[in-house]
Design a binder for these strands. Structure first.
Lengths: 203, 203
DNA sequence: TCGCTTGTTGATCATCTGATCACCAGAAAC
DNA sequence: GTTTCTGGTGATCAGATGATCAACAAGCGA
């Protein structure tokens, strides 16, 4: 029992702030950004007033939640790994999407991202623009350069992306049963995609 | 100007109820089910109290919104069309997903479905279970029976489904730019999927 | 043990929100 | 024009919610 402390227990400001933020991420992921400060405080095991010693307003707390959830979600290594032509394209694609899924297939990320998207948060659009302009565009270029495949357009890349992300949506948003291990499913989606754009073996 | 009436204007109960329901669908799609009855009433151009002449509570209004949005979204004809083996499989698949997209790619449906999903509504799960158990399973069987394709498992079918639905998610949830005409994009996703599971031409 | 610092609390405020009700007024019937 | 029915309104209530603040007490230093 780590997060549970008896009432009145004094914590170092940094520790308390972290505790609140972690609790807020879990709470808002579950009930949405419209969740109340009282419910959140009760779940953490502190009084509602204490929240306001560490965050000036609920909006600021939500902002901190976004920052923690969105920050460093896209690994800077991915671009280099995608472009590493010493490895077969198929392996790079599979590897990327296994990594990507490992990064975003969490209850907190998936749901807060979706809540924020519905709320019209600009962060979502910026994040997805980066996914498209940087990662997917690069994947497309690597596929085109690999030889045996016809050059896919961006909509094809988004379709591949969607086929994989939708697995996380089914699991964490709609809470439907999905395979415990997503790796083979992801590999098969990637393989099917590549097979689907393979050039006919003429000449 | 149809929906705009001057204050105090009397409407037939059915017309007023329809007006409120239509307004509620549009309003809740935009701001979520947590939207207030006052804002909704103001948008419709009536007083908040009037809502309660037609709906006993906000929960009942939301229920009516669900009913209107969810009802008859899955056409009963689709199953027969999918199974109509007098037409080529490829054409049936393309046709189905063009129809399906036409049915669900609306601002109201996409967003209310997602709000409801995040809120844990059982309707979503029932709807998606039907999509999987009835439509996707049948599509899978038809593909397997068609001959030139390897039998896809249900995860493969969900991947195809996701690759197409994600287009609507990008447009209506994240409000990112997407092609105006989705038909060619859908056709290409279907074609790519089938090409991806085509048996090697041996013997 | 005492005193000080400051993390924490309970009470409270203003506002928002769902819901109710007495009363008003549009329009059809005569 | 008058009456009658009922759709519509403004006022209001109770509870919820974000935010504030004076007072309390945990824990450290002397």
């Amino acid at each position: 029992m780590d997060g549970v402390v008896r009432p009145g227990r004094r914590l170092e400001p940094q520790a308390r702030r972290d505790q609140i933020l972690a609790g807020a991420v879990a709470y808002f992921a579950e009930v949405g950004l419209g969740g109340t400060t009282r419910d959140l405080a009760q779940r953490i095991g502190i009084t509602q007033a204490l929240l306001y010693r560490y965050f000036a307003s609920k909006a600021e707390l939500v902002e901190a939640v976004f920052e923690r959830v969105f920050l460093d979600r896209l690994s800077p290594h991915w671009n280099a790994e995608i472009a590493d032509r010493s490895r077969p394209l198929e392996e790079r694609l599979r590897h990327f999407y296994r990594q990507y899924a490992a990064a975003i297939f969490t209850y907190e990320w998936m749901r807060i991202f979706m809540w924020a998207g519905l709320a019209g948060e600009a962060l979502n659009q910026r994040y997805l623009s980066r996914v498209g302009d940087s990662l997917l565009a690069q994947l497309r270029d690597e596929i085109a350069a690999a030889g045996p495949y016809g050059a896919p357009d961006m909509e094809a890349m988004w379709a591949l992306h969607g086929s994989i992300v939708y697995l996380g949506i089914r699991r964490f948003i709609y809470q439907l049963p999905t395979p415990d291990d997503v790796s083979p499913v992801i590999d098969e989606s990637v393989d099917r995609f590549l097979a689907g754009i393979r050039r006919p073996q003429a000449g």
